[in-house]
C-alpha cells in the first residue's frame, strides 16, 4: 500500500516528508508503548500511536520504520517534526482512534508486523 493511500484511508494530514508519500509499505503495528515496539516488532514499516514525544520518532528511526501515524488528532511538536524530517520518516496525523485506524489499514491490506 502506498503511504498516500494510508493518508486517505485515515483522513490524515501529512506533516512531513510528503515527497516520500508515493512509496510502498507492507506492514504496520499500533502501540503506545515504545518498549514493546522495540522488543516485539520486526520489519514493520508503519507505526500507529497515540503517544506524542520525541522518543516516538527516535524509536521509529532506530527500527528503520518509514511512516508514523499519530491517531486521535495528536499533533507532534515542531521539534518532533524536524527529527522525523531529518530521518526521512513520513508523519501523518489522523482524527481516528487507534482501533478504527488499525482496522481500516488491516482491511485495506496492510499486514500485521511479524512477531518473533
Amino acid at each position: 500500500m502506498k503511504m498516500s493511500e494510508i493518508a486517505s484511508l485515515l483522513g490524515a494530514r501529512v506533516l512531513c516528508c510528503e515527497e516520500l508519500i508515493e512509496h510502498e509499505v507492507h506492514s504496520a503495528c499500533g502501540s503506545d508503548m515504545m518498549s514493546d515496539v522495540l522488543a516485539f516488532v520486526k520489519d514493520q514499516a508503519v507505526l500507529l500511536t497515540g503517544l506524542v514525544n520525541p522518543q516516538v520518532i527516535r524509536t521509529a528511526e532506530m527500527m528503520d520504520m518509514r511512516c508514523i501515524v499519530f491517531v486521535r488528532n495528536k499533533i507532534p511538536s515542531e521539534e518532533m517534526i524536524a527529527l522525523a524530517a531529518d530521518a526521512g520518516i513520513v508523519v501523518l496525523a489522523s482524527p481516528m482512534r487507534m482501533f478504527e485506524a488499525c482496522g481500516r489499514l488491516y482491511n485495506g491490506g496492510l499486514k500485521p508486523q511479524e512477531v518473533e
Binding site: 508503548m33 515504545m34 518498549s35 522488543a39 516485539f40 522518543q55 518473533e116
Partner: peptide, 17 residues
C-alpha cells in the same frame, strides 16, 4: 515513565537478543 512509553521491562532482554 510508563506514560512516556517505556518501563515494560523489555530493554535488557532486547539488548541481549
Amino acid at each position: 515513565i510508563r506514560s512516556l512509553g517505556f518501563g515494560a521491562g523489555m530493554g535488557l532482554p532486547n539488548i541481549k537478543r
